[in-house]
């Protein structure tokens, strides 16, 4: 019996093939398949090709259920860069792959949990949108925390 294949399209219009029985680990895709058979291409307009390749790699894993938890952890550990992890988490959120999203968010939280304010800004590439006076007011307010 030939296995049914689905095609996913990334934000940058790349197409990826994946077997349907693996793809339906994503609740989003499962619902789409249920609804219209998803005969054509499934577009993922918020996921870039690099991230989608990672997601596909994750979905294609061959793991016994009892080893799965460890695998997800290892999978995100190996991609320890915060930007990559955030992309991955966002893709997992859109595709509704809970385990992957939880693991990616957990990893990000682990990485930034001991960060100082400045380090968080740097890691998330956020520009400070406050004036020094506002900063001081907030710092006074939360003195004990720093």
């Amino acid at each position: 019996m030939s296995k049914k294949t689905l095609t996913l399209m990334s934000k940058d219009k790349q197409l990826f093939n994946i077997e349907e029985h693996l793809a339906v680990q994503s609740v989003t895709i499962r619902n789409m398949v249920k609804e219209d058979g998803a005969s054509s291409v499934i577009p993922l307009p918020r996921v870039d090709s690099e991230t989608l390749a990672l997601v596909i790699e994750y979905l294609n894993r061959q793991q016994a259920p009892e080893e799965d938890e460890d695998y997800v952890k290892k999978f995100v550990d190996e991609r320890g860069e915060i930007p990559t992890l955030l992309e991955l988490a966002q893709a997992a959120l859109d595709l509704d792959i809970k385990k992957l999203m939880d693991a990616a968010c957990m990893k990000v939280a682990d990485l930034i949990k001991d960060f100082t304010l400045e380090e968080v800004r740097e890691a998330l590439r956020i520009e400070n949108d406050r004036t020094p006076e506002e900063e001081k007011a907030i710092r006074d307010e939360f003195q004990w925390a720093f």
């Binding site: 968010c105 957990m106 939280a109 930034i112 949990k113 001991d114 960060f115 100082t116 304010l117 968080v120 800004r121 998330l124 956020i126 520009e127 400070n128 949108d129 406050r130 900063e135 907030i138 710092r139 939360f142 925390a145 720093f146």
Partner: peptide, 16 residues
């Protein structure tokens, strides 16, 4: 939600 309270306060200050 996965962060300690102290880090949440730091994060709160990061941007608006």
């Amino acid at each position: 939600l996965r962060l300690p309270v102290k880090t949440i306060i730091s994060c709160k200050r990061v941007c608006k």
